[in-house]
Write a protein that binds this DNA or RNA. Structure first.
Lengths: 225, 225
DNA sequence: GTAAAACCTTGATCTGGATCAAGGTACAAA
DNA sequence: TTTGTACCTTGATCCAGATCAAGGTTTTAC
């Protein structure tokens, strides 16, 4: 990391600004410093599928660096963000002279392959209610693990309330959530309602109170609601 | 490759034999020597989604090696196959002492990420006719590039016939093709028929004659049939 | 604090493709 | 050749979720 900082470049992007676009030449390797970005694909009709949402510490845009081709997807800031960019040649140089770094990189790409594997499974083998349940569970895991190194709950850490109720806060709009799990806002809305009717959750704008984590977990694996 | 052979192990699998299963501990790194294998996920109800089909020269099963976790999917021989296995520790050793190899590995994983990106785009932004058209086009590319280093056409090389007609041969059953593009055999059958009615192709068992590569390409990008 | 803009919900309708069911084809083994 | 087995096609029906439409809520910006 220290080495990285000496050759890096910081860029700022406002909410909604494109960082790069599918087809652009891959000019380097990106790290989220602050803010949040989405990596996504657009269809000709304008439908969007989000591939990743990344926050501070995550890297992205490395595929073209190793492969020598163009970006396979686009990236956009979904809130005001500061992004660190390492120019391609400097980064390749760093990697080849630091074996530990290349092992880290291999592990990182492998993790991403695993995540894609799960995303493909979700899209093709599971129905929307299961995907949504799985997303809520993942989110509660993520927010739990972050609650230690992050001071107050600015709505980002899950907090255990009355008994074993668990609060998670959606980090993105419901419309974006729809694009992430491969459905529409209308369907998200309807399924949240069904989940609430089944006493699995309670929705209050961006805060979701998980009332039955067991039931949600069942739903994510197989069930119909 | 020479180095690899001294530490490798050859295994034989008959058609239909499992090579490893989702959740198994990743014990090493696999290379297809001869034959053909599929990497896939199964839902609880038994529905299958194929993630990759690999032939001679392809590697697979490396994700858990770098990540230290279990296989995210299963692998099965779809014809009698010979597979080379490198035990995990020996492979890691080889990688760390051979910088060029790790760069190759990074490029390989990156390519796979790109492929998954396309697969996710197909599953979520395109309809079945487009996916099928795209598959036929990919196949014709693959078979074209192989026709040079492969003698006679055993039904694996595309051959230009009368005018600009192009023949491709399905390397897998139509049922497997359905699992690969995320649909059912019935739907494959119906769409092949529609494509034939539209004079895009002509189907004769496993041989597909592409009669209108332009039209097929249009269909793969946007169209309705 | 208020207005405009973005986002969300709910209802009605539509449709791509899954599922179910019943023959038909083709290849492999004896 | 025959016959068994795996694979494929075609038709009828069904359904999850998309789309269209209209109103409601929340956030942002001045």
């Amino acid at each position: 990391m220290e080495k990285i900082k000496t050759i890096a470049l910081e860029l700022k992007f406002n909410r909604g600004k494109l960082i790069f676009q599918e087809g652009d030449k891959g000019d380097g390797f990106y790290i989220v410093n602050t803010g949040r970005i989405k990596v996504f694909k657009l269809s000709l009709e304008g439908k969007e599928q989000i591939l990743h949402i990344y926050g501070p510490g995550h890297t992205f845009g490395e595929v073209p660096v190793f492969e020598g081709k163009n970006f396979p997807a686009s990236a956009m800031a979904i809130e005001a963000s500061s992004i660190i960019v390492l120019p391609r040649d400097k980064f390749v140089n760093l990697i080849t002279t630091t074996p530990a770094l290349s092992m880290n990189m291999l592990a990182d790409l492998s993790k991403r392959l695993r995540d894609f594997t799960i995303q493909i499974e979700n899209l093709s083998l599971k129905e929307v209610p299961s995907r949504l349940a799985a997303y809520l569970l993942t989110l509660s895991q993520e927010q739990k693990s972050k609650s230690s190194d992050q001071g107050m709950n600015q709505g980002i850490s899950p907090t255990k309330d009355r008994g074993n109720e668990l609060k998670v806060t959606l980090p993105i709009s419901k419309a974006q959530l729809a694009n992430l799990i491969g459905t529409t806002p209308e369907t998200i809305s309807r399924i949240f309602k069904k989940m609430a009717d089944a006493d699995l959750i309670q929705v209050k704008t961006k805060d979701i109170f998980i009332k039955d984590i067991e039931g949600l977990s069942e739903l994510s694996e197989s069930g119909r609601i």
